[in-house]
Design a protein around this nucleic acid. Sequence first.
RNA 1: GGCGACGUGGCGGAAUGGUUACGCAGCGGAUUGCAAAUCCGUCUAUACCGGUUCGAUUCCGGUCGUCGCCUCCA
Length: 456
Amino acid sequence: MNRIKLYCTYSREKMKFKPIGNGQVKMYVCGPTVYDFAHIGNARPVVVFDLFYRMFLQSYGEANVTYVRNFTDVDDKINERAKKLGIKIGELTNSTIEEYLFDMDSLGALRPNFMPRATNYIEHMIEMIKKLIGSNNAYPDNGGHVMFSVKTFQDYGQLSRRTIEEMKAGARVEVAQNKRDPMDFVLWKPSTENQPGWESPWGRGRPGWHIECSAMSKELLGDSFDIHGGGIDLAFPHHENELAQSLCAYPGKNFAKYWLHNGMLTVEGHKMSKSLGNFVTVRELLEDGISGDAIRLALISSHYRQPLDWTKKRLNECGETIKRWKELTLGKKEIEIQSNKVLEAIYDDLNTPKAISEMHHLAKNGDYEGLLASLRFMGFLDTRTEEKKPEIESEVKKLVETLIERRKKAKLDKDFELSDHLRDALSDAGVIIKDLKDGVEWEFSDEFNVSKLKEI
RNA sequence: GGCGACGUGGCGGAAUGGUUACGCAGCGGAUUGCAAAUCCGUCUAUACCGGUUCGAUUCCGGUCGUCGCCUCCA
């Protein structure tokens, strides 16, 4: 159990993991703002923290791990998009959440124990803001805003390792009139009639971005928990601000003990952006027939803290690897994962490339049961994600069999011109033929085309 | 401008103060009528310049380069 080591962003070093509670592991991961389909960059932390979750489940037992991942369902981006689509905000957030969960299920990600929605915790946020005003860590202006005062928190900037002065020097933020310090951030802001809003001591309004995670983590995990995770871009300002709020609201507590951040993702060498037109959504990939397992493997093919370049080549290679492993382990006995090198690699700050390499060793050594157990542990071959390929009619199958028989006969007659023609034609129609020692095997490829087959 | 990360063979990608993964591609072989698939074998690397050291790819300093954050962002 003490074998787990994690790199903590706060301390900037790899540390032995020791949970705060006795044998209880609590983790909170910042989830998506729900206004559109999840892109591949959204999927990375989901898969990465799914593996952390599985690692803790393996090590501490199902009953002793609590995993929370929130949905941010109040945000100006949501308002804009709902307006653009001409639908209600609730409709947009509900449907986006549904699609998100479908996509993440497809990637083999287990659902967290709790998936709180920000809008269900507004009252907790208001309570926390009141508390912060009471302790002089926050102040209202006269226009319905409440600001957090960064100067009142001595350690502000510790997580992201920057000082208030440095940030001001390079800041491009507009200095709002109502802020005592340019780095002060908004806890609560007023809403117009058209914007979603809730009654509060400061008038009808809505929360700023950061307060929701502080409020929800407190409610669901308490004022001290073990893991706080998300993308590295969240370290500042989101996590820095959460940390400041929570520690000021609950002095003397830990808030989060270990801060884990995954690196960012680029697409074919470029930052993913809508203007470059290189936005890749999980749904697109799935609809292109790429398996969730292939996407999952690609997402963990480099270490989670490293940047990851999402390329077609990587995805193809991972697809081939998964396909091979699937074939090798098909119908093999299900066993519990043994204490092995795959597990060791994962316990060492989630060294997934090492774990993958060890799985290659298992495959090479013919330890297919070990490979299967490792695949399951790593979240592959999830039965929920089994591709539901459309049933191909049996008469089509018969046609293929007939053609293969004809090729076989041609081969026996040493009519290689005919047999090669049949092979090429079948291949062109999407039927892959494998001549094995003791017979012929065949399967449909993804490009299977019935009309081409019938033309043969 | 400020802060930070990184630079490993053709590509991807771990690890390490001395012996260096693993995958893909390539090459050679087995198999095959020829292929495909499969199996076996195999080549290529630690950006550059200094320093510490018996010894550095690994530690330290500098140079160059790439990327990220500082503004919504996983």
